[in-house]
Every structure is written in C-alpha cells, then in structure tokens.
Design a protein around this nucleic acid. Structure first.
Length: 892
RNA sequence: GGGCGGUUAGCUCAGCUGGUUAGAGCACCUGCCUUACACGCAGGGGGUCACAAGUUCGAAUCUUGUACCGCCCA
C-alpha cells in the first residue's frame, strides 16, 4: 500500500503552496492592496489587531485569532468597504523585563549594575528584534494588515497619548496615589493589578498559634495560613457578638517570639464560625486586615523586603526567605509550646500571571485609577446592545465584572514601560505633567531639580487606548475621522477584563464613543488531549512548521474548520490535512475547468440564463442558497459555520455532482458550452466566497482565469466584489428533481457495489416509475447521469418489465432493475433485499403506531399528520415491491 | 461558595424557534489508478443523543434536578 502511495505522490499534480504563497504576498505588499485610505469614499471597515506581546513568538492561538480578523477584513474589502487592519505589538512590561533580566544574569550582570538607561537600550534592542520576527510571521499567515500603520505601545505617539490620559484622569480626580495593600510579586518585584493575579489551589496547612493573654494564663488560639505574617501582627480580633471572647476585648496578648504586646479588638469582619473565631490582624500583609487596621487605628508593620525575604521588623528572621522563615518560625513555636496544632488545608493563593509564583499582599505607595464612573457608560453600552459579544453569553461575564469593578492599581516597580508622568520637588510637592514641567508650571521651583516618579505604568494602561492611539490620538487625524470607531475586536476570553472592558471605558472617556461594535470571543487552542497549548508544557504547534508543510491557506482553513464557534478547538498535527486536502480539491477542479474551456472565454461575472439545462440551473440554485447561508453565518459571527458551508458546497455539490454531471459521455468531447460557462461562473463565485479563508490559492486561480479573458487588467481578486444573490435561481422543485435523479444514481451504485460488480463493467438499467413525469425527467436527462451510474442502455417507463436475473432496488416513486446475468449472486442479492425490507418494516411499525394514536391525530398539526401519512404510504408501497422482487429471486 | 460553558458514532464536531430513517470530517471495512484530484472516487459498518424526572400527541432539541469535564470570579 505504501509503495502505491509513493508512486501516486510522485506522478501527482497536487497543489504545492509554498512557492506560490511567498510570491503572492510580496506582490500584494508591492501593490499596496492592504492600505486603508482615510480619503476614500468607500464606507469604512476597521479592525485593530490585539497587539501581540514582543515576548511571544507566534503560536496557534495567534494564528487562529489573526486568521479570524483577516477573514473579516478580506470579506469586507471584497464587499467594497475601505478596509483597514492596523497591526502592531505590545511592549509587555513585566514579561519583557523579566526575560531581559534573566539574560543579564546569564551574562553575569544585573539591571541595577547596568543602570536604567543602558537597561532600556538593551531591552529596546531585544524587543525590536522580536517585533520584526512576530510581524513577519503574521505576513506568512497571509494577514492583510496595513503595515504602513504598524504601531508599538512604546512609540513616541502612543507614549504621548498615555501621558495625556494620565494627566486628564488626574485632573479629573480619578487618579490618586495611595498607601494600599497591593498584590506583590516577589519574583518580578513589582505590584500587580487584581486582574493580573491568578488564583490557584495548593495543598497547604492551617497553623493554630497560641497567643498568651497578658496578666493571665489563658491563651487565645488563632488559625492562619501564613504563620510568618505573625511577625507583623498588630492586634487579634474577634466578632463583636461572640460571647466566648467578649471578656477579652480590650485586653492585650503577647505576640509570641517577638514578645510585642498587641490589643484584642472586636470587629464585625471576623466570622465567628471560621477557624477558632479569633483572627490575627496583620494590616501590612492582608487587605482585610488592612481595613480592620484603618478602622481601629492599628500600626501597619511591613515585615517583607521587595524580594520576599523578611526585613528588620522580623527580628532574628531578618534576611531570610519567606518560606524558610515560615519553617523555622513554626519549629520555634512548637518548641515553645505555642503551636496548638497543624491541619491539612487546601489553600487558594494568588499567583503572578507572568511568572506564576505566589504573590504577597504588600503595603506600599501606588497609583490607582478610580473606576466606578468610567465603568458606567461601558456597562450601558453592553446592556443596550450597542456593543455585542459573540457568543452573547460573554456579555454576562463582562457585566458581572464591570458592576463589581475595583480601583485599578496602575503603577509598576519596573523600568520597561511608560514612566509615570509625575515629578516631585525635594519638599514632596508633586507636579503631574505630560512632559517635564516648565518653569511656569512649577513656580517657586527649578524644573531641573524635580525628580520624576521612578515607576512605570501597567502595560494595559497603554493597551486600553489602542483603538484610537494607533490612529494618532490625541491629534484630530483623518484616520480617526474615517476609521473610528472600529468594527470588531477579536480575542480569546482571557483578556476580557484586562483589555476589552478597559478599551470600552477608554473609548467613551477619551473619544466620547465606543471603540468597536462587536466583540468576537474565540476559544483557546488545545492539543489532541484537550490540554491548553503552552510554551512551558511544550505541547504547542508552531504555525510556521505547518505553513512550511501544508501552506498558510491550509493552516487557515483547517484552523477555522476545527474551531467550533465559541468553544475551544482541539488541534493536532493532522488536523491540517483537512485544509490541505480541500485546497488541493479546489486546485484540481479549477485545473479541470480551465482544461475543458476548449478555447472559450471564461464567464467571470455573469451567466447567460438562456442556455441552461437542469443541472446548470440546479448548481446555480445551490450556489445562491450557499451565498445566502454564508452571509447569514457572517452576520451572526459564525465563521466556522461559514467555512463548513463552503467546504460542503465545493466538495459535494460542485465537484461530486455538478462537475461529474456535465462531463460528456465520451472522453475528449467538449463540454456543452452553456454548462462550462456555468461551471466557470460558479467557480469564480466560489473563489470569491473562499478568498477570505484561503486568500493565496483563490487569488492565483482567479488571476489565471482572468488571464484567459480580454478584460484582464485586474491584479487581484481582493476588490472584485462579494457574490450577491437576489435568489432568482433558487428553485425548490428543481432541487427536488435533482434529488430524485441522485437517488437513482445512488441506488444503482449501491446495488452494484454490494454485488461486487467491477466498476469498469457497464450494464443496462431498467427503471419502472410510478408516474410519467418522473419518467420524463429521467428520460430527458439520461445522457447526463449515465456515466455516473455506469449505464449502457437505459429503459424508463411506467410499464417496464423486470429483466431476468437482474438486481433490484426500490426507491420512492421507482423500481430499478440492473440485468446482471452471470454476475449476480442470488444469495447476496437476497440478503441485500431482506436487509432493506427489515429496515423499512421497522420504520413502518413506528409510523403505524404513531398514526394509530388518537391523541396524535387529534392534536398534531394537520400538516405533520399528512406528512406522516404520505411517508407511511411510501413505505408500504416500497415494502410490497421489495417483497415481490424477493419472491421473483427465490423463483430463479 | 457564586457564575458561565460543555457532555450526540472510536476521535473532533453539526443538528437544539420540538415532528428528519440523528448528520459531517477523520478513523475503520469493501471495491476501484473511472476522461481534474489516491491530498482521490464509489459503496458500507458504527450512536437507547451523560443520567433521572417532568412538560407534550410527540423531546437530542423545552423545564428541573444529578453526575462528570472545562473556564471565570470570590
């Protein structure tokens, strides 16, 4: 078998995409086809790319996401919109800085040794290199981005936008600086916003620590998941109404080990049901304790250094890592008899979304954005349907977050990013300014002595401006005028909060309008076992590897076909064979059509309705139906559906039936002119419909066809117009007629195959029809379907007699006989008919029961009852005929 | 603990405004290098639609509950 395959591959004319695709893309770029012109009269259609992080090489998730966007862009470009897709990349603050820092360590240095300026130079170099690679990869996929508009979140223009926004919000009182508990990543050594924290479950313990009450031998026992934070305790708290502890409130306990004296307080935050009913209060290391601390005016003792080690407030544990300190501290408590017990406990702890290490709640000075007022218009936009999510259920997730929104911590203790536009004088006076304040802006101070805030802003503080900052905001550009708001934002669900929601808020606040009207949320790519593809697991598939092997068109088509709308696709390497096979099919059928033009000029845009036979009208009907269905799928953002509709239309209707039907009986004879015209016209429509999905192969075939016409100035399919349909070719009756013919063909094929008749053997065919009209239909078109059923002579009529030693088949409205003297095996034929008979009898029993049910007859709509009755009659008739045929066989 | 998805053929998925003999691709079996395509053609086998109860003349489709898988939030 494998030898045979190799042989076939060798002499195969299979489509080979790799050479075609690079050449084609270069031409598209050269001609500037992707440029969106703000001066154009065409209606605008714009998308901004979710900027890939400069740390990311392209993975299948990007391939999917960007294929979706390219499909939408190309579809609308075809439709006559002025389409623009703005590309770019994100500086990815923490992620990038962490990687570059690691490299420095490998080189035996650190960022602090290098200094801020040098470090930023290094990082820019590294980012630039990656940017090139990533954008190059998008080009390989075929993305039709407007590359002249490529932006980077740390661009001068975008940086200016960021500073403007900061000042705007500060002036409005919506940005403030505060001493708050934030999420601290000791590994990345920066704060994180709540949304950058991922909760994970860990097997951990609950430690029960005994605190001795001053001036008594009593102890209060406290359960904690982080015993080392005890060192920062400044109170114990109980529920105000808890009778067990009422007598202790107001007294003090001695903090074990450090021997500090701390008060016992009552606070309604404490849940008397949880643990022992007594909690330790560590205002500097727990957000709830922080609140309690503020209410009771407690001291806030920070015990951690920025790297997660303990500081001087931790006494003898100073300098020790948090986990090492925990172990020693627990041992010591045990020795002192102050550890009551240890219980197993499943702990849900926050981890850093970049390095995945456990974060620490940490008290520090940070910048925050007040979100409540920003959120309101963004909530309304989704509630009123101005912005729609696809699938719709994501709007619930979005609204839930928005309605419970919390202030956004935007400062990061990093170097890589937009520096916070705030300057301080020595006396602590603060100036918020887009650039270093001028002398007028800081009266009484020398601007040169002002020191800028050392921190940078959250990466997302630049990303949330992306839909308009990329178009030149805050300047009033013609791009903004033409292309804002954008149409669709396509992304995975992970960044609905981090990014999508914030863009909506920024859109309303700074542009006074929504940033996009539709949010398309696609699934997350998983491997063949359903595991999320990730770098660390090494189960990812490199899109470039797939492109090299199968071509970008295959990658795109396969990915879209395999991605159920709204669900996670499971993709393995052979998923891509589907696309490859399909593209080859398209290539082959195009070759066939062009070969069979026989010098005719191909029909590109119109078809002459006056010279059509049944099959021609049928494929046109199917075509229009498909166009309508595809349009509907696009309107509903069901791209996978659209791709499947096209796949089926091309493979089944067009290739398997239509092309086979128009092939002449005799090899070498030209195809009927009317039919070859319909074949080329339909092919062109197929190419247009498929172009968004498989841009390379369709553009090339289109141009090959065009080259055969006189009107061959067009250089690409991209602006050639999206197929339109007024439905005038749609004809139900016609489609039914063809289904009848297909039923005959299938019945003959099935009988022959089951009787093991060699495909090359031709045979006669006798068809006894119930009514003359069906007979006429078959008679009239017999030349067309003869070859499909390997028929030599065809006899049709209502009075046809069964020839001796013939195989038979019964379909609705007709009996089919195939004389097979010498070939027919009576036993096999008998079994065949019996099987079919069984099948029908079972169906008939079910139907009869249904029709005997008085309730059914009384309550079901008449239409349904009639349908069932007709069906019953049909089954009964076929059973009778089958019985008769079977009897005849037994007589042979 | 709360919310959202999912559970249909060996695998990945359609079908879900209730009425079809429950479909497709891959895989499998049989035959075929048939005038584009073996990355192909033709034929075939394979599913009590997770489970339970309910609504209904009728449920894969609607309701409720249960189980399991996944995601998000706390």
């Amino acid at each position: 078998m494998s030898n045979k395959n190799e042989e076939n591959t060798r002499k195969s004319s299979a489509y080979s995409p790799t050479d075609v695709e690079d050449r084609t893309y270069a031409k598209w770029m050269d001609r500037g086809f992707f440029h969106g012109d703000p001066k154009s009269d065409k209606p605008p259609y714009s998308i901004v790319i979710p900027p890939p992080n400069v740390t990311d090489v392209l993975h299948l998730g990007h391939a999917l996401n960007n294929t979706i966007q390219d499909i939408l862009i190309r579809k609308h470009r075809l439709e006559g919109y002025e389409a623009v897709w703005i590309p770019g990349s994100d500086h990815a603050g923490i992620a990038t800085q962490v990687i570059v820092q690691k490299k420095l360590v490998e080189e035996g240095t650190t960022r602090r040794e290098l200094g801020r300026e040098k470090f930023l130079e290094r990082t820019h170099d590294w980012a630039n290199k990656n940017k090139e690679t990533i954008l190059g990869q998008l080009k390989k996929i075929g993305c039709s981005c407007d590359w002249d508009r490529t932006r980077f979140t740390l661009d001068e223009g975008l940086s200016n936008a960021v500073a403007q926004v900061f000042k705007h919000l500060y002036d409005k009182g919506w940005i403030y600086r505060g001493h708050r508990i934030v999420n601290w990543c000791p590994s990345c050594q920066t704060s994180l916003s709540d949304d950058e924290v991922e909760h994970k479950d860990f097997d951990s313990s609950l430690w029960y620590i005994k605190y001795k009450i001053k001036g008594s031998d009593d102890y209060l026992t406290v359960a904690t998941t982080r015993p080392e934070t005890m060192l920062g305790d400044t109170a114990l708290a109980v529920a105000p109404k808890d009778a067990r502890f009422k007598k202790y409130v107001g007294k003090t306990v001695i903090l074990p080990i450090l021997e500090r004296e701390i008060p016992i307080i009552a606070d309604s935050y404490v849940d008397p049901e949880f643990g022992t009913g007594v909690v330790k209060v560590t205002p500097a290391h727990d957000p709830n304790d922080f609140e309690i601390g503020r209410r009771h005016d407690l001291e806030e003792i920070n015990i951690l250094n920025t790297d997660g080690s303990l500081n001087e407030n931790a006494g003898k544990f100073k300098g020790m890592d948090r986990y090492k300190a925990r172990k020693q501290l627990v041992e010591e408590l045990q020795k002192k008899g102050q550890l009551d017990k240890i219980e197993k406990y499943e702990l849900s702890a926050g981890t850093c979304y970049r390095c995945h290490k456990v974060i620490e709640p940490y008290l520090s000075e940070q910048w925050f954005v007040k979100m409540n007022e920003l959120a309101q218009p963004a909530i309304d936009a989704v509630k009123t349907g101005q912005i729609k999510f696809h699938p719709d259920y994501w709007s619930k997730t979005y609204l839930h977050w928005m309605e419970n929104i919390r202030d956004w911590c935007i400062s990061r203790q990093l170097w890589w990013g937009h520096r916070i536009p705030v300057w301080y004088a020595e006396d602590g006076t603060m100036f918020v300014s887009v650039d270093r304040p001028t002398a007028e802006a800081c009266p009484g101070y020398d601007p040169e002595t002002l020191v800028q805030d050392p921190d940078v802003l959250d990466t997302w503080f630049s990303s949330w401006l992306w839909p308009f900052s990329t178009m030149g905001w805050p300047d009033k550009t013609e791009e903004l005028e033409k292309f804002y708001p954008t149409k669709v934002l396509s992304t995975a669900s992970e960044i609905i909060f981090l990014w999508v929601a914030r863009m909506v808020m920024a859109g309303y606040e700074f542009m006074g309008n929504l940033p996009f009207t539709d949010v398309y949320i696609h699934g997350t790519v998983r491997d063949a076992n359903g595991i999320k593809m990730s770098k660390s697991l090494g189960n990812g598939i490199n899109p470039l590897e797939i492109i090299n092997k199968y071509g970008a068109d295959s990658l795109r088509m396969s990915t879209v076909l395999a991605t159920p709308d709204g669900q996670d696709p499971w993709i393995s390497k052979n998923t891509f064979e589907i696309g490859r096979n399909f593209i080859n099919k398209l290539h082959q059928v195009s070759r066939f059509v062009m070969m069979r033009l026989d010098g005719r000029t191909p029909e590109i845009n119109n078809v002459n309705d006056s010279d059509l036979v049944l099959f021609d009208r049928w494929i046109l009907s199917r075509l229009e139906r498909t166009i309508q269905a595809v349009d509907k799928a696009f309107n509903e953002f069901k791209l996978s559906n659209a791709s499947k509709l096209l796949y089926n239309f091309v493979w089944n209707d067009y290739c398997s039936w239509y092309i086979e039907l128009i092939k002449p009986d005799q090899p070498g004879t030209p195809i009927r002119p009317g039919s070859i015209d319909v074949a080329t016209y339909t092919l062109v429509q197929i190419l247009k419909l498929l172009h968004p999905f498989v841009p390379f192969v369709t553009d090339n075939i289109y141009l090959e066809l065009l080259a055969l016409t006189e009107n061959n100035k067009e250089e690409t399919i991209q602006f050639s117009g999206w197929p339109k349909t007024d439905g005038k070719h749609i004809d139900n009756e016609l489609e039914q007629s063809l289904e009848q013919i297909q039923a005959v063909v299938t019945a003959v094929r099935s009988a022959r195959s089951e009787l093991n008749v060699h495909p090359s053997k031709q045979s006669d065919l006798y068809i006894r029809v119930n009514d003359a009209a069906f007979g006429e239909l078959l008679e009239k078109h017999k030349d067309y379907f003869r070859s499909l059923a390997r028929v030599e002579n065809l006899f049709v009529g209502t009075e046809i007699k069964r020839p001796p030693l013939s195989a038979s088949a019964v379909i609705s409205g007709a009996e089919i006989f195939i004389p097979l003297e010498g070939l027919i095996d009576i036993e096999v034929e008998k079994k065949r008919l019996e099987k079919e008979l069984d099948n029908l009898k079972n169906q008939l029993i079910k139907l009869s029961k249904k029709l005997a049910n008085a309730d059914f007859l009384a309550r079901a709509p008449q239409e349904v009852i009639d349908k069932e009755k007709t069906k019953k009659d049909d089954y009964q008739e076929r059973i009778e005929k089958l019985n008769k045929n079977l009897e005849q066989i037994l007589g042979w």
